[in-house]
Simulated scan of single mutants.
Amino acid sequence: MENIWTISEYELTIRLLISALCGGFIGLERELSNHAAGFRTHILVCIGSTCIMLLSIYGFSQFVDEINVRVDPARLAAQVITGIGFLGAGAIMRNGSMISGLTTAASIWVVAAIGLCIGAGFMYLAFLATVLVVIILFVLNKVENAMMRHWRKREVMIHLIDRPGALANITSLFARYDIQISNMVMKSDSRMMEDGVKMPTMEVRFQLKTKKPKFFSIVMELIVANKDVIGMESEFDVRTLERNKQANTEQLSKNKEANL
């Protein structure tokens, strides 16, 4: 009778290779979508959880026959499910009221579960889960975007210099590309520029919607190029304009000299 508490080196190798394959298959989609946790991260999580599952089942086989020892193959696996949360939390980012990375965090958690399945030898479930996750991440993402693009509101926060016409230039861009402003909140502030001049600024938070989502990226590029814009954050293009700060400062100095 075959001992259920032992496993060959060949079987160990096969399970780890399958783990790398399944984790990489899911991570590839995240990598192509430019997410923080991508190809290598998912492979490492899947291999790691597989190793822990194998250790939990087969790593303590020498103690199985001891009278006072209780073997629980699920004990270490339970710690993987609990502990993987720290990695998922690191993939979640919050910018104001905008939250991103939830899907990546969920994919990391699922990859850990797939690794545990492979480590336990539950291959059919592991392969089925891998296929379903890839379909959900890749195919359903396109379906969701197609179905929700007419109803979904997008939030953009723009930090710009508070001078006449600055805000009007931004709102006119939205109108030109048929982007409706559902809500707008303004907050006054001031900022010391690199030339030592303190300028009045404002933070404007927009809620936007449109029937033509392809225009969002065009408008975002035009806003970034605006000389009055200091910084911008959005759910579809989170960025700071530090790389343009020097150019903006030079432009401000030229405008100041022109007005003298």
Rank of each mutant, 00 (worst) to 15 (best):
E2M: 11
N3H: 06
I4V: 08
W5N: 13
I14V: 15
I14R: 06
S19W: 03
L21Y: 00
C22M: 13
G23P: 09
I26W: 00
N34C: 08
H35N: 13
G38Y: 07
F39Y: 11
I43R: 05
L44R: 06
V45G: 05
S56H: 07
S56K: 11
S56R: 10
I57D: 06
F60Y: 12
S61P: 02
F63V: 04
N68R: 13
P73Q: 02
A74P: 00
L76R: 02
A77R: 01
V80P: 04
V80E: 00
G83L: 10
L87N: 10
G88M: 06
R94S: 04
I99N: 05
L102A: 10
L102C: 09
T104Y: 04
A106S: 13
V110E: 00
I114P: 02
G115N: 04
Y124F: 10
L128F: 14
A129L: 08
V134Q: 01
I135W: 03
F138V: 03
K142W: 00
V143A: 12
M148V: 04
M148G: 01
W151G: 02
W151A: 12
K153M: 14
V156T: 11
M157L: 14
H159R: 03
R163Y: 11
R163Q: 14
A166H: 04
S172N: 15
L173K: 12
F174L: 06
R176Q: 13
D178H: 12
D178G: 02
Q180L: 05
S182P: 00
N183D: 13
M184F: 05
M186H: 07
M186R: 09
K187C: 01
D189G: 13
S190M: 12
M192Q: 13
D195W: 10
M199D: 03
R205K: 14
T210H: 02
K214V: 09
K214W: 08
F215G: 01
I218C: 01
V219P: 01
E221R: 15
L222D: 03
V224D: 08
I230N: 01
E233A: 13
E235Q: 15
D237W: 07
V238H: 10
R243K: 14
N244R: 15
K245S: 12
T249N: 14
S253G: 00
A258W: 00
L260P: 01
